[in-house]
């Protein structure tokens, strides 16, 4: 039953992703002009002028002279074969550019998600069960500060502390010597050493909001009659709270995975630039600015897929957690 549900949901993803690819393509085409106009303008800034013939030549080479739908179908047809096209700006295949960055992005997102939950869950439960205690007030205050602090500011503060007080190199995800080195155990270790800072920076506001969500959810559940029933059975306070109200309060918590995944990728651009992280955000921003359509298109498509996958994961978890959610 559950397997059928998952299969069905995955099948539904196909037409959905197709629709997304159209929207993504149109979005990239939406700003006036194309990569060439941006390119020519850039050249113009350095007083180079291209003659009409070579512009036409370039236009043909990039396929920009063809009607939109032809460009789109070419793009999709190539996508299906795993070819994301060429990046105009980098003069490299898009797939070479994005896979490592996407990989690192997913790793960082996942680490941040774990961090967020590990911190938010116990604090959220604590502040609900001990409502209006000193601990609750402290958690609430810190939570609101966390919510209100812009990520990049936190990044700057932490970097400052890291550099000035610990003398460590905190930017990026790798030390200089590993930056362009091939993957090795040592490089993985180096990555781990660098991961914690962006993880904290990116996770703080999500943690803060999750604490608030958990607290509110649990407060709603704590006074439900089934909690009294459990208490009247003779369960100890700790177990009865963990087994019953927390379990029910988890539902909205799980739903958050769906939006946390894409949010971590697209919402973290500023932080990624400040911390000079080799993640997807900065590259995507650059590609959009330069109208580097195939690169940008690949990112938009991957982001959307990530959102869809995130929703799928959270829906599957919801079905597992709550029998009231129907399979069909």
């Amino acid at each position: 039953m559950l397997l059928r549900y998952i299969l069905k949901r995955i099948l539904w993803m196909v037409p959905f992703l197709f629709a997304v690819s159209i929207v993504a393509f149109l979005l990239i085409q939406a700003p006036p002009g194309d990569y060439l106009t941006t390119y020519i303008a850039k050249l113009g800034e350095s007083n180079e002028v291209l003659d009409q013939a070579s512009i036409q030549n370039l236009r043909e080479r990039f396929g920009l002279d063809q009607p939109l739908y032809v460009q789109y179908f070419k793009w999709v047809a190539n996508l299906l074969q795993g070819d994301f096209g060429m990046s105009f700006e980098w003069r490299q295949p898009v797939s070479d550019l994005i896979w490592e960055r996407m990989g690192l992005t997913v790793l960082l997102s996942f680490a941040t998600l774990l961090f967020t939950w590990a911190v938010a869950f116990p604090i959220g439960v604590y502040s609900a069960v001990r409502k209006y205690s000193i601990g609750d007030y402290v958690a609430t205050t810190l939570g609101f500060i966390g919510l209100a602090t812009p990520n990049f500011l936190l990044a700057l503060i932490l970097m400052y502390i890291g550099v000035v007080h610990f003398g460590s190199d905190v930017g990026g995800l790798f030390s200089n010597e590993y930056k362009n080195a091939p993957w090795s155990l040592a490089k993985v270790g180096d990555l781990m050493q660098h991961l914690w800072l962006p993880m904290i920076v990116l996770g703080t506001s999500a943690t803060a909001s999750l604490i608030r969500i958990m607290r509110a959810n649990l407060l709603d559940e704590l006074n439900k009659p089934y909690v009294d029933t459990a208490r009247a059975k003779g369960l100890s306070e700790f177990w009865l709270i963990m087994k019953y109200p927390v379990r029910v309060a988890l539902n909205p918590f799980v739903s958050t995975i769906g939006w946390i995944l894409p949010n971590l990728v697209s919402g973290a651009v500023v932080t990624a630039i400040v911390l000079s992280l080799p993640t997807a955000g900065p590259l995507m921003l650059q590609a959009l600015l330069a109208q580097d359509m195939y690169l940008a298109g690949a990112f938009v498509l991957l982001l959307s897929s990530l959102t869809v996958v995130g929703m799928l994961i959270s829906d599957i978890l919801l079905v597992l957690l709550d029998p009231r959610v129907k399979y069909d």
Binding site: P225, T229, R247, V248, D322
Partner: peptide, 15 residues
């Protein structure tokens, strides 16, 4: 032993 008024909400919905 104790039983409550609301049979709707006195049993856990997810167990």
């Amino acid at each position: 032993g104790m039983i409550f008024q609301e049979p709707m909400s006195s049993l856990s919905p997810v167990h």
